[in-house]
């Protein structure tokens, strides 16, 4: 693999776990956190703000501002010098801190262990919730049948 493709793949991977951590239920992430967390300094302590969510006219046309959502972000540097960042939905500073710590750990030698202990269970929980919702929706899909057709 060329160095650029390598970087792109690593970026894609990081993009995916950052999204997973942002969408995770705060309590579930808290329960999955490793106990031996690295010491860290704040580059940007957790801060809650808003992001303007945009939609498109007609679903596909010109963008418009739909309304805002709350978001908490932070950035930290571990004792080993790795930078972890998080942008998570809501106002939970502890959630943002945990997400940034996992982001940092995922870039270091403990990545495989953290992926197994934290990311995979989070992804499974999300997929299970999605399948449950999809199953409930599928049960309400309308099956039409013809009662009578005229002019036969």
């Amino acid at each position: 693999m060329s160095p650029t493709a390598d970087t792109a793949a690593a970026e894609g991977d990081r993009q995916r776990w950052m999204g997973l951590l942002a969408r995770a239920e705060p309590a579930r992430l808290a329960a999955l956190m490793p106990t031996d967390l690295p010491a860290h300094d704040w580059l940007r302590p957790p801060e809650t703000g808003a992001v303007m969510v945009r939609g498109r006219a007609g679903g596909t046309g010109a963008p418009f501002n739909l309304g805002e959502m709350t978001l908490t972000r932070c950035a930290l540097r571990t004792a080993e010098g790795t930078v972890g960042m998080a942008h998570v939905q809501g106002r939970d500073r502890a959630h943002a801190t945990r997400a940034a710590l996992i982001d940092a750990l995922m870039q270091g030698p403990r990545a495989a262990e953290v992926r197994r202990a934290v990311l995979e269970p989070l992804a499974e929980a999300e997929a299970a919730a999605d399948r449950a919702r999809a199953g409930a929706a599928a049960a309400t899909r309308v099956e039409f049948f013809t009662l009578m057709r005229g002019e036969d």
Partner: peptide, 23 residues
Amino acid sequence: YRTTLPRFGASRPVDTGAMACVR
């Protein structure tokens, strides 16, 4: 409450075509 929040930016336009629909 909203007026007390800093604005961190604007999202990419949401893709409603990719919506996981319940209805």
